[in-house]
Nucleic acid binder design. Sequence first.
DNA 1: CGAGGTCTTGAAGACGATCAACAAACGTGG
DNA 2: CCACGTTTGTTGATCGTCTTCAAGACCTCG
Lengths: 239, 239
Amino acid sequence: MWDALIRNLECRDILSDEERLAIQRLPARLRAIPAGGDITSEGESPGESSIIIEGFAARSKILAQGKRQLTAFHIAGDFVDLHSLLLRSMDHSVVALTDCAVANVSHGFIRQIDAAHPHLGRVLWLTTLVDAAIHRQWIVAMGRRSSAGQVAHIFCELFLRLKAVNLTAGFSYRLPITQEDLSDAMGLSVVHVNRTLRRLRMVGLMTWRDQIVTIHDLEQLKQIAEFDPEYLNLTPSPR
Amino acid sequence: MWDALIRNLECRDILSDEERLAIQRLPARLRAIPAGGDITSEGESPGESSIIIEGFAARSKILAQGKRQLTAFHIAGDFVDLHSLLLRSMDHSVVALTDCAVANVSHGFIRQIDAAHPHLGRVLWLTTLVDAAIHRQWIVAMGRRSSAGQVAHIFCELFLRLKAVNLTAGFSYRLPITQEDLSDAMGLSVVHVNRTLRRLRMVGLMTWRDQIVTIHDLEQLKQIAEFDPEYLNLTPSPR
DNA sequence: CGAGGTCTTGAAGACGATCAACAAACGTGG
DNA sequence: CCACGTTTGTTGATCGTCTTCAAGACCTCG
């Protein structure tokens, strides 16, 4: 159950046996969220935090006229609302894009971990900083990259993040979301995303068919995305 | 010197006398950064963090073909690279948009504060979470708001943040940056930003002349921006 | 006074949105 | 297992927003 989370953290720094054990002993309430459901809802002040065990989720904000903007994707092993520990209320919802399994841990236990294992606390904090770094990359992509560059960047990001938790096979990974989800993440229309995907497919960089993304030329994909993986902090180092 | 930072933190939670003192006793190196200069540079792994004492700064990423995207504005009292405490290297630069006064505090002292005053540590951590929340609002604005809504949102954000550190006068505040800076923040062309500002001025919502922003109708400005201040967490509450 | 930066406006064109229609895939119940 | 409705993906045509290029006004500062 905690495999993905632990793998996620171990990409950032070495964990001691006690730290790993502390995570595995976390009392959690397991929830199954059907696709389309809310993992946490905007405006709430939950007393617990959610970790995705399985499935794909996204931070989502709905605005007037029914427009939707996703601000992040989340996958197995992601602590999606650790920040609710300190923020007064959720400024956005976290929605399940596919059926999800989610573990809920009450804030009290997280504070205990932070107190008993300061280093582990720092690594958890780090994951929220990486979330912010990912936000910044999205802003850059939305503001100043071509639509192809923006799509390419997201596929690179997901490739590395999924690889970190062992959810890739070679240069392929399962991405069971819709083009509409992707368009809401990129701030573009579905139609335009569809055409951009077609272009990437035509030039042989990547395909996304039957929910499977396959990267045919990672180097060139990175290049048109101007992708530099450093911001993901996926190299273990003392924190 | 620490006034703005303390005011900034006290908007989030009550500080004890010891906590306030711990900040005021922080050994800092004061630096003057001229407009256009780097406060911290992309790729660096600084051994200290920077707090803005005076002036306006921004997180900046330059991409090929010389395009620039700003991902956040920072003002007096902002801890601009607290995250370098845990991240391996800066994924972006922080540039001075005006002449800035910056205080540098070595990471060691920050870790000491965090160890000796866990509550203060949490409030500092909180500020990085608010940064992330601001990033998310920018993503929403860039992706799904009209250019007028996006501009309006930024002016609302800056109004509340500057007000928190006492840098507003009524419904006015000094914003000594260029339209080009603003356009790089919004991911639009200068020309378009200029026209959008004109429209906002024409309908009497706000003006920005001689570096002074004046909001003439805050309620309506908030409305077209769909601005909800909650995400800034500017209400003190126990953290 | 000249040089460079900033602001402003015009004109032309590209990129992406919207509207619309259809195809393909999927799930469900008969 | 097929018929059906719904969701998702694909493509065309048209329209609007925003970009780009260009030029002039204004300002500050050497």
